[in-house]
Amino acid sequence: MQELKIVIAGAGAISEFHLKGWQAQEGVTLAAICDPDEGKARARAEEFGIPAVYTDVAEMLEATQPDAIDIITPVASHAPLVEMAADRGVHVMCQKPLTPTVAEAEALIEKVGERVRFMVHENYRFRPHFAEVAQRVQAGEVGRVRHARMTVRSSSMYDYPGRVPFLLGRQPYMGSFRRLVVFEVLIHHLDALRSIFGEMVVESATLDQINPELEGEDVALVTLRTRDGALVVIDANISALGYPPLPTDRLEVLGEADSLVLDREVLRLMSREEPVTVHDLKANYQACFTGAVSAFVTGLREGTPFPTDRLDNLETLRLMEGIYVAAGVAI
């Protein structure tokens, strides 16, 4: 097995789940971690047994000469860091969204070219419940899909008086995002739906805002159409009082032979009561991070395509941006 030396850029809240994913890999050494806040980087290094801490990514890359870097930083920093790694022959896995706009992603992908392997850490398609839906739909259990509806609910951006909403407490900068629920949350669902149904086009979109303190939208109603003509609807609200702080999902897949429904943790065919699949959503949250990291490692070692290769992820970005265009929001 080829031993891989990995470095980490970014020690924020989400890095915990990336690092647990890396710990689960065989033949991988975490050589260093970098963050402008040295205290954050040092805390993660101590927690995960990482020997070196840096505050400058270029310095880390020069000192460690890694095989690959996992970029877990704010979106505005992605392109410069990806280019920095590619210029040094370091393979890249980068958190989503890859860049703020499709045009910037296209430019970045062209600059990197084929110099290094390049995957986007878009992990919802690796969630075991969505992966099972994809497998069963593609196996023909519902026949030809005619209609699907994804409902997304959370209180992550709005809460009862006196309580700080979950995401605004963990990542307060999100309150200033001009593009919010589609850019930050539904981009995950769009990629998962692509993995289930294939490519889609945006037909219409309406955006709204419940929490007046936000800069961006927290409600979205979107219609898409698959290449086979199925209508796909996304109904999302991340300022839904009383719902859990993390998004809960309901996905109905209505086909000519049957209907398959994922209701939070339970997945069943509507034509029969049993059997049903009951997923552990807490375990699945970590599993999707580990799954994405595993796919990256496998792709590097075996030279096989990444499921969320930068070119594949570009299609997810185009859907995300297409929703804003359909809603009349300037990019």
Rank of each mutant, 00 (worst) to 15 (best):
R301S: 12
N313K: 02
D87L: 04
N123K: 13
Q286F: 02
V7L: 01
I187T: 13
R178S: 12
G10T: 02
A230G: 06
I33H: 03
G229K: 13
R301E: 09
V329C: 04
Q171S: 10
E215P: 01
R136A: 04
E104H: 00
T223I: 06
A58T: 14
L19P: 15
E26W: 13
V293D: 11
F306Y: 04
H18N: 02
L262N: 11
I69H: 03
L267G: 07
M60H: 02
L251A: 07
P66R: 14
I323L: 05
L260N: 09
G255H: 11
F296P: 02
V57L: 13
G12V: 12
L30H: 06
A236H: 01
Y160C: 01
D70Y: 09
N284K: 05
V325A: 01
G291H: 06
H189R: 13
S271M: 00
L180W: 07
A134G: 08
L30I: 15
V120I: 14
P305N: 09
Y54V: 12
G140D: 10
E132K: 15
G303T: 05
F183G: 03
V233A: 08
P100G: 08
A220V: 14
D218A: 12
D56H: 02
L221P: 00
L190K: 09
Q25Y: 10
V185C: 12
H147V: 00
T304C: 02
S204F: 04
Y54H: 12
V261F: 08
K111N: 07
E46T: 09
P275N: 03
